[in-house]
Simulated assay, not measured.
Amino acid sequence: MLILPSRRQFLTGLGASAGVVGSTGVYAFGIEPLYRLVVTPYAPVLPNWTPGLSLRVAVLADFHVGEPFMPLDRIAEIVDTTNALKPDLILMLGDYPAGPSVTYRKIPLPEFARVVSALRAPLGVYSILGNHDWWDDKQAQARRDGPVEAQRALENVGIPVMENDVLRLVKDGKPFWIAGVGDQIPFLLEDDEGGRDDLPGTLAKITDSAPVLLMIHEPDLFLDVPDRVSLTLAGHTHGGQVRLFGYSPAIAAIHGNNDFAYGHVVRKGRQMIISGGFGVSRIPVRLGVPPEIVLLNLGSASDPAGKTVQGPGLIQG
């Protein structure tokens, strides 16, 4: 027999549902993007990796500095947390200014650069640019050329910006390369398909067989990355900003491939890790993908406590 709820039961249930939705909204708008910060560890077994080369890398993506969602004291918290991890190397993956839709007050990029200049790693701090670094600079848009303000600000505090360039580093006598390509969508004109990326030209600068860590901003470029690269690191997506049950519903419409929304992706032996980053874009919401520092333990299957570590979202294909 079908038993229909009474009017009181219906209204009580409706009120409870509204309360859940309301509290979820408060969390997504006011708690996760502003107050949560997690460290997401990965220890992938990489192709073309030198035996005995152990490397600890902190990856920072998509700061989107601006008030109220990413003030300078929040940047300082990220810097302090990163330094406490004692990485050998720090890599920054672009998108330093926030977009206008989530910004009540812009923060000058030199002030942001001053705070991140406190990042410390024995092998250095290196960066690339993202689409917002270009979109935020009206003069660069007009002349269709750089350097953009974000690049000038970072380089003025000693953080190199790698655009289609490589650098050979050495850890414990064992060499490896970091490489950074230019942004794929730097210009706002809808009919403009020209990017700043030159992946073949960048990789052509590598002169030996040492492992390569490749920095890109938009993960789409991974489809063109050869297996010469040991690991590709990307940002841009913010994990979709809303991620439920391992799926980012907003990303499929943008990229056509939800696999490239977040986490560890393996394609025919090639590997990419997509950071969820820190900030917000378009709408000030994060739910199920809290702001994160990605911590890579390369050449080692364990964290310092001896426990196996693996980040989320391993997708193979």
Rank of each mutant, 00 (worst) to 15 (best):
M1C: 04
L4Y: 12
F10Q: 13
T12W: 15
S17M: 10
S17D: 00
A18E: 03
V20Y: 14
E32V: 06
R36I: 04
V38M: 11
V39L: 02
V39W: 12
T40D: 01
V45Y: 13
W49S: 01
P51I: 10
S54Q: 14
R56I: 05
R56Y: 13
A58Q: 11
V59W: 09
H64P: 00
G66S: 11
F69H: 15
P71G: 09
L72G: 11
R74F: 08
I75P: 02
L91Q: 12
L91E: 06
Y96E: 00
P100G: 04
S101V: 02
R105P: 00
P110G: 05
P110L: 04
F112D: 01
R114V: 00
A118C: 03
P122N: 12
L123K: 11
G124M: 04
S127E: 03
L129Y: 15
D133C: 06
D133N: 10
K138M: 04
A142Y: 11
R143P: 00
D145V: 05
R152F: 05
R152V: 06
L154Y: 07
E155T: 11
E155V: 08
I159F: 10
V161Q: 07
E163L: 05
L169G: 06
V170R: 10
K174Y: 08
P175H: 12
V181K: 10
D183T: 06
I185N: 14
F187E: 04
E190D: 08
E190L: 06
E190R: 15
I206E: 14
T207S: 12
D208S: 07
S209Y: 15
A210S: 15
P211V: 07
P226W: 14
L231M: 05
T237K: 05
R243Y: 13
R243P: 00
R243K: 09
P249W: 10
H255W: 11
G256Y: 15
N258Q: 13
F260V: 06
Y262C: 02
G263V: 11
H264I: 02
V266D: 00
I273R: 11
I274N: 03
S275H: 08
G276I: 02
F278R: 09
G279F: 09
S281K: 07
P284Y: 04
V285C: 01
R286A: 01
P290L: 03
L296P: 04
S300C: 05
K307V: 03
P312M: 09
L314G: 05
